[in-house]
Every structure is written in C-alpha cells, then in structure tokens.
Computed example of a mutant assay.
Amino acid sequence: MFRTEFDDPEGIRHGGLPTYNYRHAPGGLYTRRQLADEGLTPGRQPIAAQIVWRCGQRFAYLYRKELAVPKRPATDAQLRALMKAWVALCTCKSCGREYGYYIPRRFGECLACVEGRSA
C-alpha cells in the first residue's frame, strides 16, 4: 500500500525541497550512506530532495549520483591518529591493560577493575 502522506515531488508543502515517502524516491537520488557504499561523497552539491518516514520524525537528504565525487582516501597521519584514539579508548586507566573493545565510559575502567573494587 502506497502512502502519500509526505509525497511532495514539487516541494510545495516542504519548503521548496522535493519530498518523497520512504522507498519511493526516483532513481538517481542517493543518501550519503548509499553514496559512501559506492565510494562516493556528495561533494559540495546542494541537497536535491529528501525522504520522510515514521510520521515525519525521520528524514534523510538525497543527492544526485552524477554530481557525486570520489571519496578521498585517508592519509597516513589520519590513520595513525585514529589508531592512537582506538588504543586510548581500549586501555584501562587503572590497570593499564589494553582490551579489544571500548572501555565503558560510565565506569572509566575495565570490568575486571570495577568488579574487583565492588567485591
């Protein structure tokens, strides 16, 4: 069943921006995530349209695929910074041990240290 609740291809009701229901946007329009899956980014192009769903509580902007540009690869310095951040978030401040997961922020230390202190 096709709902026309948010369907506004001319953009009259939604501030001049063409609006479509979820899964009913025309071909050639992609979300940021869909472009990223194909190795593209919107670049500096304007928003072409939007989709709206869940009673108007959720929306996503759409961009034209033909105007999208290839994503730039991360530099070595950026990759080093990301790895450094990962190590910092996975290292317990109390015992200094590095884990393969993020240390819970609400505790600020690994679960073994939290359980040892509460026992």
Rank of each mutant, 00 (worst) to 15 (best):
T19F: 12
H24V: 08
Y22M: 14
V69I: 15
C95K: 06
R3T: 13
L82C: 06
F107E: 03
C95I: 14
L62E: 03
R3M: 01
E98D: 04
L35P: 00
G15Y: 04
G16Q: 00
G15P: 01
L89N: 09
V114Q: 00
R44Y: 07
F6Y: 15
C55E: 09
I103W: 00
Q45S: 15
V52G: 11
I12P: 07
C55G: 15
A68R: 01
W53H: 10
I51V: 14
V87I: 15
R97E: 06
D8R: 00
H14D: 10
F107Y: 10
S94C: 04
L79F: 05
M1Y: 09
G27E: 15
L35V: 00
K65E: 15
I12G: 02
I103C: 02
C95Q: 15
I51K: 01
H14N: 12
Y101L: 05
R13V: 09
I51N: 01
R23C: 10
R58E: 15
Y30M: 10
T31D: 04
R80G: 06
S94H: 09
R117S: 13
L29H: 08
G16K: 00
T19H: 00
C92E: 05
K71L: 13
T19G: 11
A49V: 02
C90A: 15
M83T: 12
L82N: 08
K65C: 10
S118N: 14
L67R: 04
A112T: 08
D76K: 04
F2M: 12
A36E: 04
Q78S: 12
F107V: 05
G15T: 08
R23P: 04
T31F: 01
S118P: 01
R105T: 13
A77Q: 05
F107N: 05
F59A: 14
L111C: 06
T31M: 05
K93A: 15
V52T: 15
A74Y: 04
H24K: 09
C55T: 12
R80P: 03
E5M: 05
R64D: 14
H14E: 04
C90L: 04
G96D: 07
L29T: 08
W86D: 12
E38Q: 10
A49C: 07
G15R: 10
Y99F: 11
L79T: 12
N21V: 03
E109M: 11
I12Y: 05
I12V: 10
E5N: 07
L67W: 03
T75R: 00
L35F: 08
V87M: 12
Y102R: 13
R54H: 15
H24T: 09
G116F: 06
I47W: 01
E115S: 09
Q45V: 14
R33I: 07
E115F: 06
Y22V: 10
K93I: 08
E98H: 02
Q34F: 03
V69L: 07
